[in-house]
Simulated scan of single mutants.
Amino acid sequence: MRVTLLALLCLAGSAVPAVAACRVATRAVEFGEVDLARDSHGTGRLTVTCDASTGFRVGIEGGDGSLFMDGPGQARLTYRLYSDPGHRVPFDEEGVAAATDGEQPAQVTVYGRVPRQSALPEGGYAGRLVVTLAF
């Protein structure tokens, strides 16, 4: 069975002292068509642009545990997010360190994995996550 799904990343807030004004652009973690008989992988990207040189941490709320995407008929698909391509370091609320020089944006890749799961109905699955910048 194949399932098409997409995990969305959205910026909900940031803890910003008067260090820099920053914007976050997201590219969703896209898994495409998923074969539930095997692990599936996808990537997304967070692009942080600031008006001054600054360091920060990029976190994803709830990323350190199993996450769920909702689908047809109240079906829930489990997935996880990681900060490394080997899927060893979960992408959690503390996040990863990043920095920008105020000229070039910081690029942070988010790696996703959908583990093998029991049969789920075919269709689109989606979810939302909270992305936070901490200075």
Rank of each mutant, 00 (worst) to 15 (best):
G62D: 00
V16W: 12
P85N: 12
G112E: 06
T78E: 13
L11G: 06
L5K: 08
L120M: 07
R76I: 01
A37I: 05
C10G: 12
T100D: 03
T109Q: 03
T43Q: 11
G65D: 08
V16D: 13
T78P: 10
A7I: 01
L81T: 10
D84V: 14
Y82M: 11
T109E: 04
G86M: 13
L81W: 02
D101M: 08
G42T: 10
T47Y: 07
T47P: 00
P90A: 01
M69W: 11
T54N: 03
L81Q: 07
Q117R: 12
Y125E: 05
R38P: 00
R116K: 12
R23G: 02
T100Y: 06
V19H: 14
R45I: 02
V16H: 12
R116Q: 11
A98N: 04
V108P: 00
A12T: 10
T47D: 00
S83K: 09
E93F: 11
P105V: 14
P72R: 00
F31W: 03
T26V: 12
G95Q: 03
T100F: 01
A28F: 02
Y111T: 09
E33M: 13
V34D: 02
F56A: 04
A99W: 11
A98V: 03
Y82A: 01
S14W: 10
V19I: 10
D92P: 08
A75S: 11
D70K: 10
G124Q: 14
L8F: 06
L133A: 03
A119P: 10
G112L: 07
D39A: 15
V34C: 07
L67H: 01
E103Q: 15
R113F: 03
S83E: 15
H41C: 00
L129F: 04
S83H: 08
T100S: 05
G62Y: 09
H87V: 06
T49F: 05
P90Q: 01
L5I: 08
P17F: 14
G86F: 12
L8N: 15
L133D: 02
R23N: 07
D39R: 09
E94Y: 11
L120D: 01
D51W: 12
L81S: 05
A25Q: 00
S118K: 09
